[in-house]
Simulated scan of single mutants.
Amino acid sequence: MQAALFNFQSLLMVMLLLICTCAYAHSIFPGIMDRNKDGAFGIFWKFARIGERLSPYVSLCCVAMAVSLLIQ
């Protein structure tokens, strides 16, 4: 995981995966994530909110990331 922080493309991939995973988990278990809006686990609620509100842009970024990985 730490190596992903030094490579920009890997960092973007980790961020996209976190956003997608948190948005999916929030749709399945909304009560658990809504209870933890504050504190250390609040970051996951924020990622879920980004995934819900910006879902068309997040999906375009996921497609762009997949295409860029295929090209390499």
Rank of each mutant, 00 (worst) to 15 (best):
G39W: 13
G39K: 15
I43Y: 08
A3K: 12
S59W: 07
M13I: 01
S10R: 15
T21A: 15
V58E: 06
C61Y: 03
Q72A: 07
V14G: 01
C61K: 05
I43D: 02
F8W: 06
Q72L: 11
R35N: 07
A25C: 07
D34K: 13
C62T: 10
G39M: 09
L16V: 02
I71M: 14
S27D: 07
A66H: 04
Y24F: 12
I71P: 00
A25R: 12
C61S: 15
L70R: 11
I32S: 06
M65Q: 12
F29V: 02
F41M: 14
Q9P: 00
D34P: 01
A25N: 05
A66D: 01
N7H: 13
Q2T: 12
N7L: 06
G39F: 09
N7F: 10
F44S: 06
G51L: 05
L11N: 03
F6A: 07
M65R: 06
G42R: 07
L11F: 14
A25M: 12
G39L: 12
Q2M: 05
D38P: 00
V14I: 03
C61G: 06
M15N: 03
G39I: 10
V14T: 06
Q9Y: 08
S59D: 13
A23E: 02
D38R: 14
Q72M: 08
L18C: 05
W45V: 01
A48L: 06
R49K: 15
M15W: 04
G51H: 05
G51C: 09
A48C: 08
A66C: 09
K37V: 12
Q2W: 01
A64L: 15
T21M: 08
E52S: 12
S68M: 11
L11Y: 10
S10D: 10
I50V: 15
I28F: 11
M33S: 08
M65P: 00
Y24S: 08
A48Y: 02
A40R: 13
R35C: 02
G31T: 02
D34W: 02
F44M: 11
L70H: 05
D38C: 05
G51A: 08
M65A: 15
T21Y: 04
L69R: 12
C22W: 00
A3N: 08
Q2I: 09
L60N: 07
A25G: 02
A23P: 00
L18M: 08
P56E: 09
L12G: 11
S10N: 07
F44G: 01
F6G: 11
P56W: 06
Q9G: 01
G39R: 14
A66G: 03
I71F: 14
G39H: 13
L17Q: 09
K46F: 03
M1P: 06
F47H: 04
S10H: 10
